[in-house]
Amino acid sequence: MKKIRVLIVDDSPFSQRLIKDALKESKYEVCGCAGTGRDGIHQYRELQPDLVTMDLTLPDMDGLECCRELLTIDPASKIIVVSAMKDEAIINRGTAIGVKAFFQKPVKSEDLLAGLERIITQQGNAADQQHFLKYFIAAFTKNIIDMTGMEVLSVDHSMNQALVSHGLGVIIGITGSQQGRIMLDVSMDVAQQFTKKLLGNAVVTDEDVFNSISEFTNIIAGHSISEINNVLKAKEFEIRLTPPSIIIGESIAIINPKMTSNTVTARTAIGSLHMNVGFVGGK
């Protein structure tokens, strides 16, 4: 198996040695050691490691400053801080910049390995999360048909990072063992037509539209998550939903920085409904 390459940025040869020893005979290999922030940035560009361990006190710059520069060069870089200092302020400032985890020196081998494992498996989680999408697609199409009597003419899906609303979006947060959100997005016109179908009324108010589309989203999310919870079984893996919020406005971007999401578009006789489902790394 290909080893996971780690760059150590630490000015103390003793600390470099401790981290190297901690990673010995594991699936990680140390591909470089830098004693200054500048050298760390230089080696990062050259070596393109999978992970970086960062000390906070470097001779030429603050360690968090160095993290920020690395994340500017490569927003996907995975950095952990290994430092003598570890307090709430450091964790909050570091997390704000994008640091994945914090360890206090002297770090124990098992703690470091477990921490790195968590960061690496966050990527692996993507496969599970992709697998969850089928439950959302099933609940989405089934409820359009069951609740309105309309046919679903076609279902397409695409992966995307940024999302632009069509007029009315309902967002429901996903939390528990998996973190993410589901969003249903329609144009105002489709929202009105769809509400008429849901309520079986020829005339609907804005309030009817907001309530109906938000409850429709809640039902899709509830059905999907119940199915997923049945598959995940154990209580500690349970997923929960937060209540819906509604966004009204056109050309609105909805951004979840750490999230990759899928948009599923269902075409019906009255127009298209878009459901977007995204997850970030699990807990």
Binding site: S165, S214, I247, G249, N256, V280
Partner: peptide
């Protein structure tokens, strides 16, 4: 209390309904 990941919403003119 359990919290969801944040959704950042950006645009010229829009309004929201919280639950």
């Amino acid at each position: 209390v359990d919290i969801s990941p944040p959704s950042l919403v950006v645009g010229e003119k829009f309004k929201l309904k919280v639950s």
